[in-house]
Deep mutational scan, measured.
Amino acid sequence: HAATELTPEQAAALKPYDRIVITGRFNAIGDAVSAVSRRADEEGAASFYVVDTSEFGNSGNWRVVADVYKA
């Protein structure tokens, strides 16, 4: 099962156990969220919340930071 994305309210009520950072070329924010979901799932997380997204220069590469939560 894939890790689910939390709302800001849900994330605020929970304590993350880790923070992950992924970088890559994403065509849309949805693609980045899917990549975070896969990584969170690999780490055994039940859910995640994207904290920050930023573009690296003009290369089209993105850096996505997310907190991950157990259950």
Rank of each mutant, 00 (worst) to 15 (best):
K70D: 06
I22S: 00
D67N: 09
D41C: 15
F26W: 09
A71D: 14
Y49N: 03
A28M: 08
V65S: 03
T7C: 07
D41T: 15
V21N: 02
S47K: 04
H1L: 08
A46Q: 11
Y69P: 02
T4M: 13
P8F: 14
T23C: 14
I20Y: 05
R38C: 08
P8Y: 15
E43L: 15
V21R: 00
H1Y: 12
W62Y: 11
A12I: 09
V50F: 03
D18G: 15
E43T: 12
T4C: 14
D52G: 09
V33T: 07
G24Y: 04
A28Y: 09
R39F: 10
Y17F: 13
P8S: 14
S54D: 06
A32Q: 03
R25A: 09
I29W: 13
S54P: 01
A13M: 13
G44M: 05
T23G: 02
D52Y: 14
A32C: 08
T7L: 07
E5F: 06
A13T: 13
A13G: 11
R25E: 09
D18T: 11
I29K: 11
A71C: 11
V50Q: 03
L6N: 03
N61R: 09
N61S: 09
A28C: 13
A11T: 04
A45G: 05
A3G: 03
E42A: 12
N61E: 15
Y17E: 01
D31S: 06
A2L: 12
G60T: 05
F48I: 00
V65N: 02
V33E: 05
K70C: 10
E55M: 11
A2G: 14
A71E: 13
S34D: 14
A71L: 11
A35H: 06
T4E: 09
V33H: 08
L14I: 06
D52R: 06
S37N: 09
V51D: 00
A32N: 00
A45S: 03
V50T: 01
E43A: 14
A32T: 04
F48G: 01
Y49C: 08
G30C: 13
D67I: 10
V64H: 00
V64N: 02
V33L: 14
S47R: 04
L6D: 03
S59Q: 10
T4P: 04
N58C: 10
D67V: 07
N61D: 12
K15G: 03
R19K: 03
S37I: 12
W62A: 02
E43H: 14
D41G: 15
S34C: 13
G57P: 08
S59G: 11
D18M: 15
V21Q: 05
R19L: 06
N27C: 13
H1N: 10
R39S: 03
S47E: 03
R63G: 03
R39A: 11
